[in-house]
């Protein structure tokens, strides 16, 4: 159980609890560099069951947990590239991020997302792969992908469907609106709503409680109550790539990246 300090994220094991801190400016946009470091983390997680009991994922940056996929990287890599080649590149990225999130989702360790501020798109999908979401009252949640002519691509729809009622799922996806942490707690997305700046502290206290239980019993319980939506997650990759091939997506990405609008994050 070795620690790691990377360019976009770092982790540290303390008494069987792993704290994974995200720190890619400006708001933990998930691009290829962060993906590589997440893959290292997933590999470490698979080796950790013997000694580990819980994982806490949090952001070390003020604006929030994560603003989602790195759309600027996606745009810069897509420009002037034939559609088939672009789709192939994105599919490969999605296959890799899905592997990471499936590992996190199914890990025998208990996983906690301690979130604050912006928790959008891929950032929300990362949180949804965790067992518990502990949210600072200033956290905001959103799936803004439809604004770009896309759907969430990191397994967000299947995990949202698994965890929440269909009316809320439709509201979040079809309007692209963001909701605050109080609303998120009321619909069951957030398990603990805490004061500003307290999400990580409360997550640590929760991990300390989890640590008291027998690991095998906790892992067995998790298996029973957290079905893995593998088939739906795979289907989502295909649907995402179909949508990505359309010219409307180019236009949506261009508008977002080149926007001088003060509210580019707003759907």
């Amino acid at each position: 159980m070795t620690n790691f300090t990377g360019k976009t994220l770092s982790w540290e094991w303390k008494g069987g609890v792993c704290e994974l801190g995200l720190h890619r400016e400006p708001c933990n946009e998930i691009g290829s560099e962060m993906l590589e470091e997440f893959e290292r983390f997933a590999a470490a997680l698979e080796r950790a069951f013997e000694e580990g009991c819980a994982v806490i994922i949090y952001s070390q940056l003020k604006p929030g947990f994560s603003a989602g996929a790195d759309l600027r990287e996606l745009y810069s890599r897509s420009r002037d590239v034939p559609v088939a080649e672009r789709v192939a590149g994105v599919r490969e990225f999605l296959e890799r991020i899905h592997k990471v999130l499936n590992t996190l989702d199914a890990s025998p360790l208990t996983t906690i997302a301690a979130v604050h501020g912006v928790t959008f798109g891929g950032g929300l999908e990362l949180a949804l792969a965790c067992d518990l979401i502990i949210a600072d009252k200033m956290a905001r949640f959103c799936f803004p992908e439809l604004r770009l002519g896309l759907i969430p691509g990191f397994g967000g729809i299947p995990r949202l469907k698994r965890d929440l009622g269909n009316a809320v799922v439709r509201d979040l996806l079809l309007t692209g609106r963001s909701i605050n942490a109080t609303k998120a707690a009321s619909v069951g997305l957030v398990s603990q709503l805490v004061a500003e700046g307290q999400a990580l502290n409360v997550a640590r206290a929760t991990a300390a409680q989890i640590k008291k239980f027998d690991r095998k019993t906790s892992a067995t319980t998790k298996q029973s109550v957290k079905p893995m939506p593998y088939a739906d997650v795979r289907q989502e990759i295909g649907l995402f790539c179909e949508l990505l091939a359309r010219p409307a997506v180019d236009e949506g990405l261009r508008k977002f990246v080149e926007s001088a609008d003060v509210l580019p994050y707003l759907p």
């Binding site: 604006p63 929030g64 501020g117 912006v118 905001r140 609008d261 003060v262 994050y265 707003l266």
Partner: peptide, 8 residues
């Protein structure tokens, strides 16, 4: 304020 602060 910027977009993220507007959300705040």
């Amino acid at each position: 304020i910027d977009s993220l602060q507007a959300l705040e």
